[in-house]
Design a protein around this nucleic acid. Sequence first.
DNA 1: CTCCTGTCCTGCCGGC
DNA 2: TGCCGGCAGGACAGGA
Length: 277
Amino acid sequence: MPELPEVEIVRRGLEQALLQQSIKHVEISRYDLRVPIPPDFATLVAGRRIEKIQRRGKYIIMIMDGAHAAVWHLGMSGRVYIHPADMVPERLKHDHVVMHAANDTCVVFNDPRRFGMLYLSNASAWEKEKPFVNMGPEPLGNSFNGPVLQERLKGRRTPIKVALLDQAIVAGVGNIYACEALYEAGINPQRPACDLDTAETDALARAVKLVLERAIAAGGSTLKDYHHTDGTLGYFQYHFSVYDREGDPCPDCSCREKVQRIVQAGRSTFYCKKRQK
DNA sequence: CTCCTGTCCTGCCGGC
DNA sequence: TGCCGGCAGGACAGGA
């Protein structure tokens, strides 16, 4: 899925297309996402004006008049297409939700694996919902830095890679950027999280910020089927240092090592065992 | 508390 | 060509 950078790109696209627009109507063809869409979602959203579109971790929150907030997660395979008013969108398999705005912009949520999530909350209380109660700091905000990260890793003997995937440690980091940040910081993904010293957590916090910012600047990464919200492809030029590059030479060519793939907590980790200590 | 496993679901790719 | 196993960006529940 969409990790933080991809979700942020989607958020920006939605903001451009929908801010201050009213929702004319919503078509829902499948309610049975992993967490089902509430049956009255379409009814409650119809006629509402979108006042703000926020992101928290990998979630998008659309604040509407009438004190509603739509909370949206794209899961592993979710995509958002934004069709301008003059385009009649072709109906694709797995288009589960189609929102029509007053200006005839049409927003489509397509999610083959249906791991996504879409529900209604309250505009002033969405942060009290389950996903956000224990969520860690926003990595790109001022409240995330080396000391904060070190504090949050205290007592966690789990491998640092696995800890980075825990949304309670830091929000929005997924499998790709966890690998990339650890490579950038030169830290072995298998190190127990609480063993990192001050200099290392400092380097890691900086690396997390760097890889996320870089990816946002590149327009979100293009991986297999990731598309921008306008349906155009992302940047093919952008590629990862280690993620999905097993056997490739380490991009830090001075170490002359090959990228390794291991499995941690059931998920692939890619790293350079020479560069990452 | 932490940590480990299994599960939800479809699509795609590689091997035979 | 087709079938089958393994794997995929996430998050949660349940149990040790």
